[in-house]
Design a binder for these strands. Structure first.
Lengths: 140, 140
DNA sequence: CTAGGGCCTATAGCAACTATAGGGTCAAGC
DNA sequence: GCTTGACCCTATAGTTGCTATAGGCCCTAG
């Protein structure tokens, strides 16, 4: 009995918003649960596990589409593990690329920031200057 | 004469899509240009500079809202430079935080990936296992 | 004079939610 | 018995930064 959860319980247990849970259902990522006589959604442990899986993957940066794939793969235990492996590897590569991009970007922001040598007005502010000029063009 | 540009020229010169230029105008980020007799948008060098500024800031990861602020600040040359400085510093902090998050995430993905010890089917795939369990809970 | 490229407006779609409106349900307290 | 308040329901619109589509005008070259 106590494994009968309402949407609010599910949300609390997974640190998800209620609307988000409904949203996941609307796009088919969460299965449609049974309804109580009052038309409330009634969830069990399987739903909780599913939502936990989704949230964990979200935390790891997977898209909802990727999560749907992962979930489909994981439910078919005889399926080749290689597909899961490929998905996580591809995702890792994406993440690593994003890190590289952001690192270069931070570098440049730091460089730009360093140009503000205590000037007090925009007219002699080198930051705006730096933003105006393309970084690839030579500085004067 | 030759500093009269059409939207396609502007787009090409800044590696922006035509629709995007119009979009920037629609949200007030680009000023409304004059129109030719045929109702075509007619741009000058100031517009080009403005769009370049926008695109450069976008490349640096600023949001359109932040860019609007930066542009407003930069046009008032007597204004205190401190605000610009603060904006770029805040943005840098954001970027650095994002890098930290992604780095932790990549770490975990690598850890998860390492669990696939050549198992061939999902049933003994440790990756799905790893995704299922919360990373904070102890492993058995 | 027609084909193509470019331009115009307006609207809808994308991810992944979030917010709002307008209502029903239910247990507790007076 | 009745109200209060927390919870639930549906449906729709908003968010960011675009992109795509439909349906149509302009202009030049062949």
């Amino acid at each position: 009995m106590s494994d009968s959860l309402r949407i609010g319980d599910l949300a609390r247990l997974t640190e998800t918003k209620v609307v988000t849970v409904r949203y996941y259902e609307s796009i088919g990522l969460m299965p449609k649960p049974d309804r109580s006589p009052a038309n409330y959604r009634v969830y069990g442990k399987a739903h909780l596990a599913r939502l936990r899986f989704i949230r964990r993957c979200r935390d790891l940066g997977f898209s909802l589409e990727q999560i749907a794939e992962l979930a489909a793969l994981s439910s078919d235990t005889r399926r080749a593990c290689g597909e899961v492996d490929a998905l996580t590897k591809a995702h890792l590569a994406e993440v690593e690329e994003k890190i590289a991009d952001l690192t270069a970007l931070a570098e440049e922001l730091r460089r730009i920031n360093a140009r503000c040598h205590g000037s007090t007005t925009i007219s002699n502010c080198r930051i705006i200057d730096a933003l105006d000029r393309s970084s690839t063009s030579a500085e004067g």
